[in-house]
């Protein structure tokens, strides 16, 4: 018994020692996390107490402590606005369009790029495709306005086919498709990077075996490549759910105009006009808070879906 106890004590001490050494070995890594946590705490969590102004009529001079409380008045103002349904619809249509078509085109692009055998050509194309990601919308938007203007390159090309000039950014019916298309153009290359990385993880022997069995290029793509990256597709699709209320402020702000307000005004541009230009900080915070809550729910949902369909878990 004593021997057992001694062995047990000895085993416990060994485990403790092992834990100590493991901790000591990983200590540098833990320490290196500290600056990140500090930044996260200072700039993301500490300012969160500021959301109280969503329930106040905030005046900067009075501060958080002395500004009068107004309950849910700011939220009511949002939902009693006659344009709110239109604004929500625009936000959802543009955001969903970007998510769905963006994902689809990124996958297609990754698959096509995977079929390219000439590595130099492949790299040039890949670089050219994602370099637009690094341009701000202020710059890219100016390019788009120039290209799609009545006197722009696109209309010149269309004129060659006898098509009358089209005001892409000046017609309500065309604004949303144009916004979605231009956003995808800017981001599909960047979005394809993860899929391209996923493609490299597919076992090449599967392709060799399929070739031996007589599978053609399309067959290999549908039966090996797509199933191989399916978990990644599901994961990214689920995670993108959190962004359905983010239709892209910068882009819309740069491209929209009074004539297309009915199809271009989104939550963020509305908040900008009413909250920031109109100095209604409480209102802007209320809308931001509401957006964050909806996003939180959607992120929770997406996490559930990612776990269910792609076995993706953080915890």
């Amino acid at each position: 018994m004593n021997t057992t106890r001694m062995v047990s004590r000895s085993s416990g001490a060994t485990k403790e020692r092992a834990r100590y050494w493991r901790l000591r070995r990983k200590l540098p890594l833990y320490l290196m996390l500290i600056p990140g946590f500090i930044v996260l705490g200072l700039f993301h969590y500490y300012p969160m107490y500021g959301v109280v102004i969503a329930f106040q009529k905030y005046e900067p001079l009075l501060g958080f402590a002395n500004s009068p409380w107004v309950g849910l008045e700011n939220f009511e103002a949002l939902f009693t606005n006659p344009d709110i349904a239109l604004i929500l619809r625009n936000t959802l249509v543009i955001a969903m369009g970007k998510i769905i078509l963006g994902q689809f085109l990124s996958i297609v692009f990754a698959l096509l790029l995977n079929e390219v055998r000439l590595s130099v050509f492949k790299r040039v194309i890949q670089t050219a495709s994602y370099v637009l990601h690094f341009l701000s919308w202020m710059i890219f938007g100016a390019i788009i306005i120039d290209l799609l203007g009545l006197d722009g390159a696109v209309n010149h090309i269309l004129a060659g086919f006898g098509v009358e000039p089209i005001m892409f950014l000046g017609q309500p019916a065309l604004f949303q498709p144009t916004a979605i298309f231009t956003d995808i153009w800017k981001s599909f290359g960047w979005g394809a990077i993860i899929y391209i990385a996923a493609l490299t993880n597919i076992d090449p022997t599967l392709y060799e075996a399929a070739s031996v069995d007589g599978a053609g290029r399309w067959r290999r793509m549908f039966n090996i490549t797509l199933p191989g990256i399916a978990p990644t597709i599901i994961l990214l699709s689920c995670l993108s759910l959190g962004g359905v209320l983010n239709a892209g402020f910068e882009q819309i702000f740069v491209l929209y105009n009074s004539r297309v307000m009915e199809s271009a005004d989104i939550i963020d541009t509305y908040v900008y006009r009413v909250g920031l230009v109109g100095l209604q900080f409480s209102f802007a915070t209320a809308v931001g808070l509401l957006k964050s809550l909806v996003s939180l729910v959607l992120i929770g949902l997406s996490y559930f879906l990612a776990d269910r369909f792609a076995n993706y878990r953080v915890f």
Partner: peptide, 23 residues
């Protein structure tokens, strides 16, 4: 004025430009 100004500004600008271009 603070509450409604942004909406009203948007309203007149939108309607005026649509009238001018014939929408």
């Amino acid at each position: 004025l603070q509450k409604y100004q942004a909406d009203l500004t948007k309203l007149w600008q939108e309607r005026f430009i649509k009238i001018v271009v014939g929408d």
